[in-house]
């Protein structure tokens, strides 16, 4: 039921892939790749983060537990990865302060791979965010977490079908039990190293005049900021009048947005 990675390495044996993982915690040094963990609140992003890095980022069963970005590292197949745990977000379009941290990093932090952690029990709403992320990046992996819970509720997910519809690799996992983490790592590794390619599902702005307006703005933005990523998204936000994006464009800091809110490992003094 899970998507088989397509390269010729030894994927069958869990033991071997296990031994390829080295949890680096915060001892990171210079990472070869940056991987972002995005997703709706309370889908288990921090749990995935902990499973992979061996750190103990706080988890809790309510939306909004993580409010600042946290970084950790792991090494896989000899390459060093930096994993960034982000606050949960319902959408890239509207944001409270904590969500903005996530949004800015996904959009402007230039992660090499974005893992969207989704909850199978609330699939439609989670796909809403996943589709928005796929809109802006080619390098995304969807991790359907909480599969143990889904099974207990009699819900089954067709991972292969989902991968086909979304156009990106899909991994079914239960992070708290460590299930599916190996496969997630393999997919991350393949994607970061360019061994797998994908053609994400894209939406059409099927609203009259919107598409033309966006195209016009994208052309202008390309002109003014040749290196800026996600111009379509920025154009959409400008059209909607997002004050923070307008501000960022007018001051030219749009290219550096992903660098704010730099990692604050533990924000609280008392380890809460």
């Amino acid at each position: 039921m899970m998507k088989q990675p397509d390269s010729g390495k030894c994927k069958g044996c869990a033991a071997s892939s296990d031994s390829k993982l080295e949890k680096l915690g915060v001892k990171l040094g210079q990472a070869d790749f940056v991987v972002a963990l995005a997703g709706n609140p309370n889908t288990g992003k921090s749990t995935v983060f902990n499973a992979v890095t061996g750190l103990r980022q706080h988890t809790g069963n309510w939306p909004g537990k993580t409010i600042a970005r946290a970084e950790g590292g792991f090494s896989y197949n000899g390459k060093k990865f930096k994993l960034v745990d982000l606050p949960g977000t319902y959408s890239l379009l509207s944001a409270t302060e904590d969500e903005e941290v996530a949004r800015n990093f996904i959009l402007f932090g230039r992660p090499d791979v974005t893992v969207v952690v989704i909850d199978p029990m609330r699939l439609e709403r989670n796909l809403n965010l996943a589709l928005q992320v796929l809109q802006i990046t080619d390098k995304a992996i969807v991790c359907v977490n909480l599969m143990d819970e889904a099974r207990a509720h009699g819900v089954s997910i067709d991972g292969r079908g989902l991968a086909r519809d979304l156009g990106v690799p899909v991994v079914l996992a239960a992070a708290r039990q460590g299930e599916g983490i190996d496969q997630l790592l393999t997919e991350i590794d393949d994607m970061a190293n360019g061994r797998s390619s994908c053609t994400p599902h894209r939406l059409k702005y099927d609203i009259p005049t919107v598409q033309e307006s966006i195209e016009e703005l994208v052309a202008a933005l390309t002109d003014a900021f040749p290196t800026m990523p996600h111009r379509e998204w920025v154009a959409l936000r400008l059209l909607e009048g997002d004050p923070r994006i307008i501000q960022a464009v007018s001051t030219g800091e749009i290219g550096t947005l992903g660098e704010d809110h730099v990692a604050t490992g533990t924000i609280s003094a008392c380890g809460n």
């Binding site: 319902y90 959408s91 379009l93 509207s94 409270t96 709403r125 809403n128």
Partner: peptide
């Protein structure tokens, strides 16, 4: 405003 888009996001 924010409330409207939040509700939209929630489905």
């Amino acid at each position: 405003g924010l409330e409207r888009s939040r509700l939209l996001d929630l489905g």
